[in-house]
Nucleic acid binder design. Structure first.
Lengths: 220, 220
DNA sequence: GAAATCTTTGACCCTTTGGTCAAGGACAGG
DNA sequence: CCTGTCCTTGACCAAAGGGTCAAAGATTTC
């Protein structure tokens, strides 16, 4: 079970009224189970591909019971996404303008790779949403996300002007970190298939590779 | 209109029988329009999210007419995917073991980035398929794709042992090329949103960035 | 321990969707 | 210009899917 998306924003919205947080123990347990099941199904099938029956089955509840806790399929999805954005941006927020430039960026890379490993479903949910043109997240991406990236890009530019790291385009540097780390979650199936049936964990090697890559890219 | 996926394999399968290639001019035109429309819709909505009505509308045909040319929704999808794999791997096939190592890899990166720019729908179709665990492509990925990657990884290892390029993990090097180039197609919406409303083409800058990145990564 | 308040679900409803079919048009080829 | 093949579609159909509801079961509260 995973609180990752369930915790940040107190789920509710449903339960006809619309004021209170999860009250009873039962409510907390069931909304948690629903969000976890929905994450499982939405991340694997996309919004339109997922069905309430599938989510209900994974959650171990009946379909009408889902709809007792959430007003609609869409409401479940929105709940997941709104919890996601914050957690998704946290590793970037932690990048400290006062820190040692190369170390800060390398640490960011490692945090993102760790997230890809620990929360692949969240990564795929996000990927699905962007792939379809972000119909339910456009605002957050053009607002929150863009603002944070612009802010950190400015920090990076400062480091570059101080000669601490190489002068590569800050926005594209950030894109490259996203692309390279999330790839291991979103394309996990392909990565494992290509590496062969030995079934060993690709992440340790990926970590080493990314250390080398960004080490060389950032050297002033 | 785009022949990319329509041409490689002669579409047919439908038309009740199952022997002949597109015979008439009408047939060629309509199967082409259907595959192009299906690429549009599948790449944007995923398989389950797409509907025959949407595809029919984009193609400018009636739904029963679609099903005159293709046996089922699934048949259209399969047709697209089977045409895709070959084209997708071509840029890697072209990497020449006899060529100058760094130049060969850089050229591969540029070809892939060019594909992301010219064929974003194909990239997203592929991404959708892998994200959902590749239910209809597993065989091709574990076979054709893995084989080619293994072959080229061996070539790269040879170059590394000859001291021509840095000794990074060949498979992860290839993954990084895929991740970094396809990101600009698959996450296009996000890339453009973050770069801001100026609406300028991200690809020229991406090209410069990737030149720097791989130049530094590969230097022996 | 009974009233008031949550939870749960079987049965149902309406829309969407993949797919069928028979009949009517368009187009060769002779 | 007529016949046999190819193409097109309006009308249907059955299944799936999102969502509702009333009534029955649990829990809590006093």
């Amino acid at each position: 079970m995973n609180e990752f998306a369930a915790e940040p924003e107190p789920e509710d919205e449903a339960l006809q009224d619309g004021g209170a947080r999860p009250r009873t123990r039962i409510q907390r347990r069931n909304t948690g189970a629903i969000l976890d099941a929905a994450l499982e199904v939405f991340s694997a099938q996309g919004f339109r591909g997922a069905t309430l029956d599938q989510i209900a089955e994974v959650a171990g509840l009946s379909k009408p019971n889902l709809l007792y806790y959430f007003a609609s399929k869409e409401a479940i999805h929105v709940e997941l996404l709104s919890g996601l954005m914050d957690t998704w941006l946290d590793p970037l927020r932690e990048m400290d303008p006062e820190g040692e430039p190369e170390a800060e960026i390398m640490a960011y890379v490692r945090r993102k790779l760790q997230m890809a490993r620990d929360y692949p479903r969240e990564s795929r949910l996000f990927a699905n949403e962007i792939l379809q043109g972000a119909p339910r997240m456009r605002a957050a991406i053009e607002g929150e996300l863009k603002d944070l990236v612009d802010e950190k890009a400015a920090v990076i530019r400062g480091w570059q002007q101080a000669g601490k790291i190489a002068g590569v385009h800050p926005h594209h540097l950030i894109f490259s970190i996203w692309a390279l780390t999330q790839h291991y979650a979103d394309f996990d199936m392909q990565v494992r298939a290509v590496l062969g049936p030995e079934g060993e964990d690709p992440f340790p090697e990926a970590g080493k590779f990314l250390d080398t890559l960004f080490g060389r890219l950032l050297a002033p």
